[in-house]
Design a protein around this nucleic acid. Structure first.
Lengths: 236, 236
DNA sequence: ACCTGAACACCGTTCAAGT
DNA sequence: ACCTGAACACCGTTCAAGT
């Protein structure tokens, strides 16, 4: 006769003490956190929410993560894994940067509620994220960017990308003035944009992102040309 | 002989019941929240933290704000009031845009710990906000931007500014690889940036913001020139 | 109308006890 | 080693009672 509290028994209550087979792992906890975050927003990364979803006590998680901050850093790693840095070995730096930015935005736009949380938490040591920065820095320095400026280029684009990812998650009609005649210029611009984008089948957030990224990359190319000229190097 | 629980008596405990003179107001609550946020971070907007600072019970605040969300929206209004759109009536559109972006970021950078919180909560429908958009759209259209594109220009810059504001809220050493030799390019770039910025007395977030904004504005000017040429207008 | 004070349903985290 | 279960110090919010 099988014991009623066997680990394999669905819905059975586990007694105290170490289970015969491990029920948790760091990976399982992080993936559950990301899934819950997508499903129910910021509250999803709660220790208790994840424990509840996994059918364990909240305190059990502390065998695999050191606390809430560690949990958040781990979830970011999961997302960062999908950012594409392969372009830096294949195409010109500005095209690689655009490809990087596009995949960066896509990765976070898929998990909008993580952004504000993740951007404030420091980088975990020796992480996949560090690997990504290393690849992008290499590409920029190879293209002629001064070592001391590379991270500012990266952070500038990151700032824009993360803001754009937040925007992509927001209500498309967020800017609707919902007035008539009180703000003529604003109201006219809103109506004109709606009509113009409807013809193209494009979303407002998409349009602003593409325009902003193109502008920033075009500006960065001009700035790099200036730096090259300063150093007397032959520009391209 | 004065009553020991007189409202005017410093440190005296108030008894139950309506006080003889009002001790709270919405404005006082919001300003205290902003002040505490500056002083002790995200925890400052807590209902209990504000109540403690004002020497009242947590439940007392509910006579003036409807809850935590209302509190946060109110604090944001306080900050947003400092965004400067006056430049659009005084200087070229790109300079006005820079001034607008600077004040936009400064308004939030003055209260760094509010950003992560405020950017998650959707923008409330406020006439002050619509007023701001109306002024910026007017400036852009007057400069030659097509009505249908004006809001994309605005949103692109807003995305960057909000991302930069999030960055300003983060730990300045957030990107510290904290490794030795594992990520040579990344580590070298981090060290070079630190040295270069120390000489200028500038913060990393500041440097990335300025570079990104300059790049974006320069790119936007190029794009507008292209649009003008397309329409056969005389560029400047 | 506006505050107190108690209560309720939540958090994250710690730690002894059990296997 | 890895989980339970109780406990602790927190939250935001509700509501009757008091003036």
């Amino acid at each position: 006769m099988p014991r009623p509290d066997d680990d394999a028994t669905a819905g059975a209550r586990r007694g105290a003490g170490r289970p015969r087979s491990r029920v948790l792992s760091r990976r399982l906890i992080l993936e559950t956190g990301l899934r819950l975050m997508d499903a129910r927003g910021d509250g999803g990364v709660g220790i208790r929410a994840i424990a509840g979803e996994l059918g364990v006590q909240p305190s059990s998680l502390y065998n695999h993560v050191s606390g809430r901050d560690d949990l958040i850093a781990g979830v970011r790693e999961l997302i960062s894994d999908r950012i594409d840095v392969a372009g830096f070995d294949a195409v010109p730096w500005y095209d690689a940067l655009e490809r990087w930015a596009d995949s960066y935005r896509a990765a976070f736009a898929a998990h909008p509620s993580t952004i504000a949380l993740l951007t404030v938490t420091p980088l975990a040591e020796g992480s996949r994220t560090s690997e990504m920065y290393d690849a992008v820095v290499r590409g920029l320095v190879r293209a002629g960017w001064p070592e001391a400026r590379a991270l500012s280029v990266i952070v500038a684009i990151e700032n824009f990308v993360l803001g754009a990812a937040l925007d992509a998650a927001a209500d498309p009609d967020m800017l609707d003035p919902r007035t008539e005649g009180r703000f003529p210029a604003f109201e006219a611009a809103f109506a004109a944009r709606r009509e113009s984008l409807a013809a193209l089948g494009s979303a407002p957030a998409e349009d602003a992102y593409r325009l902003g990224l193109r502008a920033m990359l075009s500006g960065l190319r001009a700035i790099l040309s200036g730096l090259r000229a300063e150093r007397g190097a032959i520009g391209r």
